[in-house]
Structure formats: C-alpha cells, structure tokens
Design a protein around this nucleic acid. Structure first.
Lengths: 121, 121
DNA sequence: ATAAAACATGAAGTCAACTCCAGGTCAAGC
DNA sequence: GCTTGACCTGGAGTTGACTTCATGTTTTAT
C-alpha cells in the first residue's frame, strides 16, 4: 500500500495530476484512511501506469476512461465492440502518420549529414 | 493559386484554423493580393497537408514549426541534428505505446467476443 | 445599385488537462 | 507545546489550440 507521494514517484505523475485523475473518475478504486488520506494498492499503481501508457499514446482522458470502463466490464455490448474496432483503426492510422513523420525525419537527417560530409571535404 | 476557402476545402482545415496557423508562424510563405486577401500556392497547400499529418501524429504546433523550419534550412547545425535524433526516439516510443494500446484493444476484443460466443450457446 | 457572399482584423470565449494557491487537519520529532 | 511536513479541499490560474464574435471592406450576382 502506498501514499499519494509514493504513487507519484512510482508513476512520475504529479500529485496534483493523480488527484485530478481521481476527480475525473479514472480511479474509482482508491480507498481512504479514516483521516481521509488516499491509499494506493499495487493494482491502483498498475492502473495509473496503464493510464500513463495510453496518455503517451495521446489518447484523451475521456478515451482512457472509456477503455478502463471497458476493461472492468466483463460483457461488452455491440456498440462497445464496434467502438473499439473504430478506435483500433484510429490508433492504426495514428501509427501510420507517426511513421510518415519518422521517414520525414530520416530524410532530413540524411540530407543534413550528407551536406555536412560535403562541407568537411 | 487558391483562396483561403479553397485551401480550407482542400485540406479540411477550417478557415479560422488556417489563419491561426499563419499567425503562429507556420505559414510564412503565403502571399497577399493588393486587397489583403491571402493567396495559397500549391506548395502552401502541400505545407498545410504536412502540418496536418504531423498534427494527426499528435505533435504540438511548436514541434511542427520546428520541423518546418528545419525542412527549410539547408545546412543543419549539430544541435538540430541531435534534436531530431531525440525527436525520432520520442516518435518511436509513441509508436510503441500505441502498439501496446492496440494489443490492449485486441485483448479486450477477444475477451468480449469470446464471452459473447459463450453466451450465444 | 444593392444585397449577399467572401474576405479581413483584433479581441474575447471555450475546452481539456493540468497546475497552483489559500486555508485547514493531523502525526511525528525536538 | 510547537514547528514541520505530508496530506486534504475547493477554487482560481495557466497553456495550447482553436473557435466565435463584432466590425469592416471588397467582390460578385441580380
């Protein structure tokens, strides 16, 4: 069991951000001590790390919430499934765009080093 | 040569967004008619589409600006190159995170359909 | 010639996602 | 007993990226 400060150092999320996430309904599982202090279980930390991963993949908090809700639900509705398939396509297209950006970088990088080499001669 | 409205329909960016991008310094190339109206060349449209691609890859406008500036420069400095290498790693890690999200989706999807099949029996 | 459509500007408004602040509780160490 | 530090809350402030608005000019169609 961890304090909010420990959760913060473990996840590298700021304390305020964690509190904000709780307010936003992304952490319905965290318990409180009699004095009101939050207690984080290992699975809460897991959950925070999962949120972090999705955030790094640039999903909005609303989307993250949707996923977490789905992860909790054992029987998905038809809409949920088609929603996820849609989301999957979105993520795929984002990956494709990122790869284009990577190519762009490589191209520019190749140009740059080529010009540098030429100048060195 | 295109009007701002044509640029908007070609890129699917709103007219206001295009004006906003110009203000933000992402479109230093667009010319004006004597009456003040913007004129978009085909390469301006290209530029807008490139911006759009980077945005879809969820780069910030500042990052986009950086890239465009670099694309314009023919001789890159050492910092520029190391900056791009860094950025490349960032993009790569973002792709990795997205792939994790994809896996997560597939997992949940598999679970969902499995449960569905079970229920159908 | 006049109304409607397309363009312009500067400033204000909006929204998500934080981030910071003021004021308060509570336990631990000196 | 008192200060310090970690925690709490509600609310205000910030930032990025637009979006909307008020107002004005120019172009185009009837």
């Amino acid at each position: 069991m961890y304090t909010i400060k420990q959760a913060s150092t473990l996840t590298r999320l700021s304390i305020d951000t964690i509190r904000y996430y709780e307010k936003a309904g992304l952490l319905p599982t965290i318990k409180r001590l009699p004095n009101g202090h939050r207690v984080f279980s290992p699975s809460d930390i897991e959950r925070l790390l999962l949120i972090l991963c999705m955030k790094k993949a640039s999903l909005s908090l609303e989307e993250v919430k949707l996923y977490l809700d789905i992860a909790e639900t054992s029987n998905m509705t038809h809409e949920m499934i088609s929603g996820m398939l849609q989301q999957k396509e979105k993520v795929k297209s984002q990956i494709a765009q990122l790869q284009t950006v990577l190519e762009f970088i490589d191209e520019k990088l190749a140009e740059g080093t080529w010009l540098k080499k030429k100048a060195e001669k």
